[in-house]
Amino acid sequence: MSAQERRPENDGRDFADAMWSVPSSLLAGMAIYGGLGWLLDRWLGMSAFFPIGVVLGVVLGGYLVYRKFGR
């Protein structure tokens, strides 16, 4: 698997994979952690956790894509 992975014709596929998974990863991170923050806000009656959760989710999603594809 690793021998096949390094061949130059697979580079294009890897690159396309990475670029297409950026928006969905960021959206998923925002949805999960923003949603958690929103629920916390509802529970505690505050309005601070939702923005924090959104930003945290974006950062985590971006970190995930960067570590996964950017060697």
Binding site: F15, A18, M19, V22, P23, L26, L27, M30, G34, F50, P51, V54, V55, V58, V59, G62, V65, Y66, F69, G70, R71
Partner: peptide
């Protein structure tokens, strides 16, 4: 180049998506 393109794309796309939820915030 690919690694740095990925990093830049992630950071830029994050701004666009934060713009998407800013009205809710």
């Amino acid at each position: 180049i690919r690694q740095n393109m990925l990093l830049g794309f992630v950071l830029t796309e994050a701004l666009a998506l934060i713009g998407l939820v800013a009205p809710f915030i």
